[in-house]
Nucleic acid binder design. Structure first.
Length: 448
RNA sequence: GUGGUUGUAGCUCAGUUGGUUAGAGCGCUGGAUUGUGAUUCCAGAGGUCGCCGGUUCAAGCCCGGUCUUCCACCCCA
């Protein structure tokens, strides 16, 4: 049989895994530095935990896990005869793969509320699954790196999470633009434009501004039922380039004014700590899951930065505040705010820019090559002692032709090779070859 | 989910209006080199042409289905 893997999934070669771990390690380090604690949840959740949380589109993208046993015998006769998949799903599948890390987290908070100290800060770096149609940078299995805090509506967390974005990307050597908006400003806009009932439609349309241009956005708004005067009002907003230009336009909306006030505070807090990256207000930033109610973030590669002009990649991180995520699981008044790093896309960008450090691909320091059986015995002792000292060392497992072993060393990408023959065993002075330069010298064990 | 696109050696790709035995580069194996890789030279191995079916005297090439890749939507990291 011909080997294959499911659509939208990937295998990773050792060098790729190391580079992914390099990204995860930096993100994890910053999460911990900011006081976020690790938690884990199962890859499978009860289907009822997941359904209805991501909108109608989201439900279609959920992976369902088939029940065990003779599940069809328990299914409804009529639904079976009618081939009604939607009705059948609940009868033959009670579990699904998690679609993100936020909803399982909400479930977790409700179930463990007595064991947690609030505000509760947690992080998780785990895979999620979506039955989306794959494209480049879009997979059916991918990792999310989330940090969330629940149990506080303090805007200090908005500021803190902005710093977290800033710190992580700075350490990764990537210049980014951190865009910030507030759902309340969008709500205020919808109110003033008379589209309060259609806020979702409105935000989806204006989010596409930089991609399709104003004319197409206006077209789409009309298609979604916006009146001409509403479109005029929206255009005024989108033409306003900064927060203080938007503020007066929202004078007639209480919720809009609240959004402006919150954003001013966050920008003030962040600016006072001198972020390394640009942090900007973007009224067109409308993306976010249905449950975002306050701040919204989106982070993109800064294509104005030297060397990054040609990067074409959507958002590489994002997040938002949600006033009410746990109430659906029966827990009221539990506001939260969280962010997520798109590790897969960050990987692609760093790869494109050649921004991975050289030692992210291989960390073996020495490879020992032995020329005969006696030397091999000796080499096993030596490699054992090197490992005990914390040195990353490996031993070619037989006394093969040196040419063959050297070729293996080259493929492994090891920086230094120790050659051990009868002379070396006798004298204790090993032949050390530096692969990069071809230089060769004699060293003793103590000098390694 | 809608429309399109891609699939030929381990990898990247050629392959004429359908016509005999499907090619190249790189990689791989062996040798030149009994203790020296990456460079050089010589030789060799490696293919159900994604899969299933159809048209035809004849299919890598045409048709249908299916899987996969990538792209545009939808949505999203």
């Amino acid at each position: 049989m011909k080997p294959s893997i499911p659509k939208g999934t990937r295998d990773f070669l050792p060098a790729e895994v190391r580079r992914r771990e390099y990204i995860f390690a930096i993100i994890r380090k910053h999460f911990r530095r900011f006081g976020y604690q690790p938690i884990e949840t199962p890859v499978m959740e009860d289907l009822q935990t997941l359904t209805g949380k991501y909108g109608e589109e989201g439900d279609k993208l959920l992976f369902k896990v088939l029940n065990n046993g003779d599940f069809l015998s328990k299914a409804d006769e009529n639904d079976l005869a009618n081939r009604d998949s939607n009705k059948l799903v609940g009868q033959i599948s009670k579990r699904g793969l998690r679609y993100d890390l936020t909803v399982p987290f909400a479930r977790y908070v409700v179930m463990h509320q007595n064991d947690l100290a609030f505000p509760f800060k947690r992080y998780a770096i785990m895979p999620v699954w979506r039955a989306d149609r794959p494209q480049k940078g879009r997979y059916q299995e991918f990792y999310q790196c989330d940090a969330d805090v629940v149990g506080s509506d303090s805007l200090l967390y908005e500021a803190e999470l902005t710093q977290l974005f800033d710190g992580v990307f700075h350490e990764l050597g990537l210049r980014v633009i951190i865009r910030l908006n507030n759902r309340k400003i969008l709500a205020g806009l919808a109110e003033i434009a008379g589209l309060a009932d259609n806020m979702m439609d409105m935000t989806i349309a204006i989010d596409k501004l930089d991609k399709i241009g104003w004319d197409k956005v206006a077209e789409e708004l009309t298609g979604r039922g916006a009146a001409p005067h509403a479109i005029q009002i929206i255009k005024q907003f989108l033409d306003a380039s900064d927060l203080e230009a938007v503020a007066p336009l929202l004078a007639g909306s209480a919720i809009g004014g609240q959004g402006v006030k919150e954003l001013r505070e966050v920008f003030g807090l962040v600016a006072a700590q001198s972020p390394k990256n640009r942090v900007v207000f973007d009224v067109t930033l409308a993306r976010g899951l249905n449950y975002y109610t306050g701040a919204i973030w989106e982070v993109a590669v800064d294509t104005d930065a030297p060397g990054q002009e040609n990067v074409r990649m959507g958002s590489i991180a994002g997040g938002g505040r949600y006033a009410d995520l746990t109430s659906i699981f029966g827990m009221k008044d539990m506001p939260g705010v969280g962010i997520s790093f798109g590790a897969e896309r960050i990987y692609d960008v760093l790869e494109e820019l050649g921004a991975f450090p050289a030692d992210a691909a291989e960390d073996l320091q020495y490879l020992l090559l032995c020329l005969d059986e006696d030397a091999l015995q000796h080499g096993f002792g030596l490699v054992s002692r090197l490992r005990a000292r914390g040195i990353h060392a490996d031993l070619y497992p037989s006394a093969a032709k040196l040419q063959k072993m050297m070729k293996y060393a080259d493929q492994r990408g090891v920086p230094k090779v120790l050659i051990i023959g009868s002379e070396e065993v006798k004298s204790g002075a090993y032949s050390l070859k530096v692969m990069g330069t071809g230089e060769q010298s004699k060293v003793t064990e103590a000098a390694l």
